[in-house]
């Protein structure tokens, strides 16, 4: 079976993973109109060649990124999302969270 190298768990059968779509920048909700939302939601790049995309290792629910050639199905490299997203999202806490 084809192997995918999970940054957390190492090489595993591709059946242990779920494809999660292209890596795309999230539009700013405050400055996005309906047309831009439609493009973001429905119009992928669907590129032929090397693309960066999300994958999830289902046994650990661990999301990571992969560079893959969609023509040859060759995986160039896999890496943790922290390489792209330097700052994690803040958890709702005592000070930052919504009061209920």
């Amino acid at each position: 079976m084809k192997l995918l190298n999970c940054p957390l768990n190492g090489p595993r059968n591709i059946a242990e993973f779920t494809y999660g779509g292209e890596l795309r920048p999230m539009p700013d909700p405050a400055a996005t109109d309906a047309q831009q939302w439609a493009e973001h939601l429905f119009f992928p790049d669907n590129g032929a060649g090397i693309v960066t995309e999300w994958w999830c290792h289902t046994a650990t629910a661990y999301w990571f990124l992969a560079q893959r050639n969609t023509l040859t199905d060759e995986v160039i490299r896999t890496f943790p999302p922290s390489e792209v997203f330097k700052q994690g999202r803040k958890l709702a806490g005592k000070d930052g969270g919504e009061k209920s």
């Binding site: 079976m1 084809k2 059946a15 969609t70 199905d73």
Partner: peptide, 13 residues
């Protein structure tokens, strides 16, 4: 197939 790909290669799985 479970993920997108161009090309017509078939897989054993």
């Amino acid at each position: 197939d479970p993920y997108p790909r161009y090309g017509s290669r078939a897989t054993l799985e």
